[in-house]
């Protein structure tokens, strides 16, 4: 029983990481109908900014955090205008490829600038975790779970209660209509990219202490995050969160009871099954009949 609890905690922990990255993915998808294949690298980039500010420049943790987020604002803006904007009127395919190219650029630029060494980023809080009975609750996982929950809540409030949030929603639902209603669509999309970059950045800074900060840290997570968004229903925020957690639990239990080396396969087999049986995901609308 303890083992099951411990595994569940680990699954939820990893799942929250997937969910956090998936959140940024969904936002961009809703605003632009583009799947951003560089979303994982957003996390990586921010984590390295944090390492730079905190470990190398010696800034205090929270100051470094702000520096990293400020960096991500600029990063999101550059990404919007460099990778998405010139291709905005084309089909999804060139944009998709463009984000793949961006992923290569980001990873290798960091490699060239920082070097290949992974870094050990300390957590936001100094405590290591709790021992509850024979179950150990890792402190940083708890922070991630809490942060994910807080961000979802914040996001909900932002979208539902603020004007900018409502304009963003309008943009993501129907660009032309939003434009007719006087919503500055271009700016809204830029904001979406900035916001996604910041979200990805938060994910990177939070995940860093668990899996260390390395060039490849984002790639593996991003792929699972994609899977999570599809399982949850593409474009659905609560779906992405639940999809992420479901995925984390499935792969942890699959690894524990079936096979460790095939751990990644479980996530993908579940995804495959979903695409076959229920491609719209848990919360998605049924894919509309074409006319």
């Amino acid at each position: 029983m303890d083992i099951l609890l411990q595994l569940t905690f680990a699954g939820i922990g990893m799942g929250s990481i997937y969910a956090l990255v998936a959140l940024g993915l969904v936002l961009i998808y809703r605003a632009t109908s583009v799947v951003n294949f560089a979303q994982g690298d957003f996390a990586m980039f921010a984590a390295f900014l944090m390492v730079l500010a905190h470990l190398h420049l010696g800034l205090p943790y929270w100051a470094s955090f702000l520096v990293a987020l400020a960096g991500m604002v600029a990063f999101g803006l550059i990404f919007n205008y460099g990778v998405y904007y010139p291709l905005r009127n084309r089909s999804y395919l060139p944009v998709l490829i463009s984000t793949l190219g961006a992923s290569i650029v980001i990873q290798n630029s960091v490699l060239a600038a920082y070097g290949p060494h992974p870094a050990n980023l300390p957590g936001a809080l100094s405590f290591q975790g709790f021992q509850v009975g024979s179950v150990f609750l890792d402190g940083q996982y708890l922070v991630i779970i809490a942060a994910t929950a807080a961000l979802v809540l914040l996001q909900h409030l932002f979208f539902e209660k603020t004007i900018v949030g409502k304009q963003l929603q309008a943009t993501s639902q129907d660009k032309e209509m939003a434009s007719l209603l006087g919503v500055p669509v271009k700016i809204m999309i830029a904001i979406t990219f900035i916001y996604s970059a910041v979200l990805g950045g938060v994910a990177g800074v939070l995940v860093g202490p668990i899996i260390y900060v390395s060039i490849g840290m984002g790639g593996a997570i991003a792929l699972k995050a994609f899977a999570a968004t599809i399982i949850g229903g593409f474009g659905d925020i609560k779906g992405a969160i639940i999809g992420g957690v479901v995925l984390g639990i499935i792969e942890t239990f699959g690894a524990a009871f079936i096979s460790v080396p095939y751990k990644d396969a479980f996530a993908f087999i579940v995804l495959f099954a979903f695409l076959m049986v229920r491609p719209q995901g848990i919360f998605g609308e049924k894919i509309a009949e074409k006319a």
Binding site: G101, A102, I104, N108
Partner: peptide
């Protein structure tokens, strides 16, 4: 050397933008 993969990735983006 170190930056050639980065240049490669950049070329991919530029191709997408300028040679659809």
């Amino acid at each position: 050397k170190e930056i050639y993969m980065a240049v490669y990735g950049l070329s991919v983006i530029l191709i997408m933008i300028f040679m659809p």
